[in-house]
């Protein structure tokens, strides 16, 4: 039973206000959003901060939902399982997610996020407008790759990420986004 206490200690040490591990669907997304919103309302969080956190959460959660389909075909035990966490500190919220992705996505994702991280505020704005214009008429499911750009814009900080190699088919993709409290 010690793991319960260990898990509790980790959550307290990292100021995690919400952790969800398991399958991700739109229904789960809505529940997680509602819980985080209630939590922020309860402490009277600043509405601008609240909106930014909500925004980043939505993109993060819907990304996981979207990509879980791709991993589904592959023989991997925890294929449907991903993790999502929100940490709250005095000066910031930390939104993290981890989910399995197919290895052929690693390079593309890395390049995409590194490119986003190389841009400043104006650069991100231009990139966003450019992407959304090009996405017109396309019937692609999801946001035409706008999600990460939006997360970076709302955060105002670099996106932190990592890939953990699991096997020849799958890697674990971790992503961390920070939202400053106290008006940046």
């Amino acid at each position: 039973m010690k793991y319960i206490y260990e898990l509790h200690k980790t959550m307290v040490a990292r100021n995690l206000i919400l952790v969800y591990e398991g399958e991700f669907t739109q229904e789960i997304t809505k529940s997680v959003l509602a819980m985080a919103e209630r939590n922020m309302d309860a402490i009277g969080e600043d509405s601008a901060v609240k909106r930014k956190v909500f925004n980043v959460m939505v993109e993060c959660l819907q990304n996981i939902v979207k990509h879980s389909d791709e991993v589904n075909d592959i023989n991997y035990t925890d294929k449907n399982s991903a993790v999502f966490m929100i940490g709250k500190q005095d000066d910031k919220y930390i939104i993290t997610s981890g989910n399995p992705i197919t290895n052929d996505k690693v390079e593309m994702l890395q390049e995409k996020i590194e490119h986003i991280n190389s841009l400043d505020k104006e650069g991100l704005k231009t990139y966003y407008k450019d992407k959304i214009k090009k996405s017109q008429g396309l019937s692609a499911k999801g946001g035409a790759g706008l999600g990460f750009i939006d997360m970076a814009r709302k955060s105002g900080q670099k996106l932190q990420f990592d890939f953990e190699h699991i096997n020849e088919n799958i890697s674990f993709f971790s992503l961390k986004t920070i939202i400053r409290r106290n008006n940046q």
Partner: peptide, 16 residues
């Protein structure tokens, strides 16, 4: 009040 990036694409379609 809020829209996600996938909706932003559709808002642009509506505006167009």
């Amino acid at each position: 009040e809020y829209f996600n990036t996938a909706s932003s694409k559709l808002i642009l379609d509506i505006l167009s």
